[in-house]
Every structure is written in C-alpha cells, then in structure tokens.
Design a binder for these strands. Sequence first.
DNA 1: CTGAAAGCGCTTACAG
DNA 2: CTGAAAGCGCTTACAG
Lengths: 341, 341
Amino acid sequence: MKEHDHAGRPRATLEDVAREAGVSRATASRAIRGGDLVSSANREAVQEAVERLGYVPNPAARSLVTRQTDTIAVVVPEHDDRIFSDPFIGRTIAGVGEALADTPQQVVLLMRSRSRGNEQLAAYLRGGHVDGIVVVSHHRDDHLAREIARSQLPTAFIGRPLEDGIDLPYVDLDNVAGGRLAAERLLASGMRHPATVTGPQDMVAAIDRLAGWGEALRAAGLDDSVRYEGDFTMLPAQELGRRLFEEHPEVDGVFAANDLIAVGVMNAARERGLRVPGDVRIVGFDDTPLGMSTHPQLTSITNPAGELARIATQLVLDQLAGERPAWPVILTPELVARESA
Amino acid sequence: MKEHDHAGRPRATLEDVAREAGVSRATASRAIRGGDLVSSANREAVQEAVERLGYVPNPAARSLVTRQTDTIAVVVPEHDDRIFSDPFIGRTIAGVGEALADTPQQVVLLMRSRSRGNEQLAAYLRGGHVDGIVVVSHHRDDHLAREIARSQLPTAFIGRPLEDGIDLPYVDLDNVAGGRLAAERLLASGMRHPATVTGPQDMVAAIDRLAGWGEALRAAGLDDSVRYEGDFTMLPAQELGRRLFEEHPEVDGVFAANDLIAVGVMNAARERGLRVPGDVRIVGFDDTPLGMSTHPQLTSITNPAGELARIATQLVLDQLAGERPAWPVILTPELVARESA
DNA sequence: CTGAAAGCGCTTACAG
DNA sequence: CTGAAAGCGCTTACAG
C-alpha cells in the first residue's frame, strides 16, 4: 500500500531524489538538511530534484533514526470549556506557538479528556510522541508533575508545580505581590468591607493571590475572612457573587482572582442594583481584553501570558540543546487602573 | 544516543519484550496489538513482559511501516485570539477530540501562524504528519481547500468549502434558515427598522446568514440595506454598533451574526442609553453560554458545535476505513427565545 | 499459532 | 566532499 500523490504517483522518497540528482542517498540527505559538507553543484542538483519530485521527507523515518519528533506538547489539564474561554490560557498556548515559529518544532495541544481524564494525556507523553513539554494550568492532584518528572523530558511549568518533592523548571508570576496590589488599590479607594472570590485552591496562582490579598488586609487591620472559592470561570462566579452580596450586603470592595470571575461578580452586583464602582469596587486579575469590554471597564492586574509562554518555551529549548537554564524565572505584576476600582 | 528511562535504563524495545517473554518479535508484536492469532499462554507472557519492562511501542517505527500516524488534524485558519475567544470554535475543537476518544487517533490543533500565515500549517499537512483533516472556520482565500484537495487526505469541512471547483466532504448548519429565523423573530416582535452586523463576507456562515436575513425582510416588505460587516469578534462589533446607532437612530431590531457580535452591539446600545429589548431588540447566533450571562439574556439561534464536530469526525473516520460516506450533512437551526428579542 | 526474513525511509559514522 | 553499509524499531506476508 503505497502513498500516492494527486496525480496517482507514489510519494517520492529520498532514493528517488538521489537517483534524479545523480548522487547517493547520503549526499542527498545532507543536501536537504542544509549540510555544509556538500558541493554546491550537488546541492543545487538535489534542490532541483526535490522540487521536480515534490519530495517531502517522511517524518516517521527521520524520527526513527534521529530519535527526535520535533514536536513540543502544551499540556493543559483542563476541559475544553475552560481552555477555550479563558483568554489567559489561550494567549499562553498561542505564545508557545509563536516562540517556536522560527524553529522546526511543532506544537501539539494536549488537554484533559472528558472520558479518560489526564490518563490519555499522560499515555501520549509516555508514548514518545514529543521532545518537550510546557505545562499550564496545573492542579495539585492532576499527577502531572510526577508523571512528567518520571518521563525525563525537557519540561517547563508556567506556574510553580504543586506536587511534593517535585523539582521541575518553571516560570511564574509573583502572584502574592499581585494579590497585595489588588488589596492596596481597594484600600486606597476607601474600602472598609473586603471580600474576595478566589480561584480553585488546588492551583498555585489561586493560592498565592489569596495569600497576598489576606496579608495586605491584615496588615491594614481589616478582616480577610469573607471569601468564596470559585473556579476561574464566569458563570459559577456570578452565582458566588449573588451569594456574596446576599450574605454580606456591607461589602464595598471585591478582589476577583481573575477577569472572568470579575465579570461574573460585576453582573451579580448589577443584578442587585449595586453601582460599580460607586457602591462596590472590583479588581480583576490577568488584564485580559475582556476587561476592556465591560461597563465600567475593569481595573486589573497584569499577567503577561505571552511573555510567560516565551520564557517557558525557551527553558525547554535550552534543555533540548543540552544546556541547564536558570530557573525559576519570576515576573512582577502591575496594576492597570481603569474604572471599576 | 539511546533513550533512557528514569532509572537510567535504555528504553525497552520490542526485541527486549520478545526475549523476556521467550517468543519471537513477530508474536510479541501480534500479542501487543491484540492479535487473535496468538496462543493465550504467549499472550500472557508477552503482557507480563510488557509490564515488567514498561514497554511502550515506538510510534515512529510503527508509523514507518503501517504508514499511519494515528493523528487527525483540526485545522483552524484563524489567529489564536479568535480561536480562544469564540466559544463556537472551542466547542468544535473539543468535539473532535471527544469523537476520537475511543479510537487510537490523537488530535492535533493547527492554527494560523502570526509570522507565517497558513503556509506553515499547509506544510505540516503536506509533511505526512496526519491521517485525516477536519477544517473549521474556513475563509474563501485561505487556499486551504485547494491545498487539502491536493493532499488527497480524508477530510471534512465544518461549513461548506468556498473555493471554486472544490468538491470536498462537509457538514454544515442551514445558515440561510438561521438568518430567516432571526428575521422572523424580530418581525414578530414588531420591528420596523431592521439592521444587521454581519460576519466576515469571506466566510460561508456569514454569507448565508445574511442571505436568509435579507430574504425574509424583503418578503415582509422591509428594507434590508442597513448592514455593517463585522468579523465575528466582540470589540470591533461594539464599535460597529456605535456607528450603527449613530447613523441609524431609528433602528429597533438588530440581527447579530454571532453571539460575540451580539454582546458588542448590546454594549453599544447600553452606552447610548437604549434599552434592550425595550428600544431595540437583538438576536444573536450560535447559542453559546455567553448568551446566558448577559443582561438581558440573549435570544439566539442554535449552532450545535459538538454535533457538527462529531459528524465531521465520522466523515473522516469513514474515509479512513475505505468507505464513501454520504455528504453533505445539513443540520437545522432553532431559535432559542430569551430576553433580548 | 509461530518464527525467520524482508522492508518501511531515513541518518550517520566510517573509510576514502 | 562522497558513497556503501549499517541500523533505527517496528509490522507483515510467507512458509511451516
């Protein structure tokens, strides 16, 4: 069963190119991979043959001998609904792709399967399909860190890995500082009754943001106990917002652990007839485009997804090149003041 | 350069398994792939050896002989910002993954590259990395249909391909009927001055929705000339909405070609102090979760992404199995009445 | 049901 | 700079 092209001819092989160019397979191979140890005459002959034949190297054959697949996995242990609705995750995935644009590496997106959880994903990683891994949106119990550590593959986490005894390269935002920034902004605008809707407490970003928030509140002598645990998505956050304003009508400042949560809380506030920022001030996180389309526009904390992705990718690329890059890399968040707080 | 596992041993090969189980490579291979022509004693021995050694077949070696890659590409010729913000696209990608969950096939997501456009994507397809292709969000001039037709790979488009002389399997929603549905709803609620913000007119969904809309309006004796061309995203749609209400203050009904556009238009209406649906009624399209989080909630037209993805995937799988599936498959949209119209 | 052998399409020391 | 040859790790007729 041979492969055929659109004209019905079997797909050209290196052997065909070599014959057509009048050289051996070895020099054809060298010429194609831009080898420097090929005479320019032969290089040209091969080049022409390649074009005439429409030759494309068989990646399986190449991988078999080079032991490289030229593909990097972006692992996102989340379901599609979150992956395709959270702008931060999207920017991150795209960022890896952009960072790899000038390399031969391809990106493959691996997400949590609805039917088989992370097991399918782990099996793929184990299967030798990829040369390196970038992980984003890791949860404490997804067992990914352990699995990946065992794989010995070049890896970088975006966000500090959470499993015990795991020591893997990562890049992260200083989320504690981010939480503090949110508190300080709200404090400065006169908030007396703070509340927060957090992210899931099995994720390091959510944990750290809450830590920074609580720390700053306590330092200011305020109560930090009003908190609702969300999951970084909008609709559940909206429901949480309803409960929040119901159970704590005195609240006049809310730190939402990401912009999606912020929009949910803002909707809940509007439903209650609360004005933002008049009655209640809201600060989001991630500084996504979403925040510019709300009314009022959202004050938020930066979380440079593209930059994090770029650095994580470089961490993997360095390991692939046999180097030992320095890590962790920690970026500093900033507050973007708009209208909501 | 051998591959090593976490204990420093080179990765086990089929040869190792065969030796360990006391059989030939051939029967080891048969046993592993669930071959029926292996004695149960040998099957068990091989099974044990596989586990003891932690053996995982080398996919490159297997592909080289089977000429199958066990991967299906989901091709989305859009930039990341749209892919990761449009719920319809996200559901579609995830739907392909779900439809493949019980097969050995893996999904790889191919999107338009910022630096190299669709060329990189086409090169990957040409490279023999995949067994089949599902295309979503195709544009008239992305040259994908032609490229894919030449590749001879099993393919299915979600949305009728637009290039001339291309005859490729596809599944689609009856978007003309959808546009009509929107018009009828608005007409029934007493709209006298219709307007529409369309999708990009190089996409079949956008073209067809507009056609159905215009047709129904003219049938009702109304003017269908007030139209603004959007690109299926929210922020530009919001700007278009501003212009619309500025230039046509008489408008009392808007058909937005998708929910993202609808949200943009709704925001623009609110900015102008227009009440929805009091002053202006709005119908969206795609019936995404987004529409349930707006105020008022969005009346929309269904566009079953998961179902479309499932059918498209099946179309590809059938071709892979050497069958000739019937196409096109056309689904019928329905109106979901909520608050905005 | 089983094994020896050929072959998939490349790359890469090695010798020249 | 070049070619003959070995080898990457599998699968699959073929003969038994």
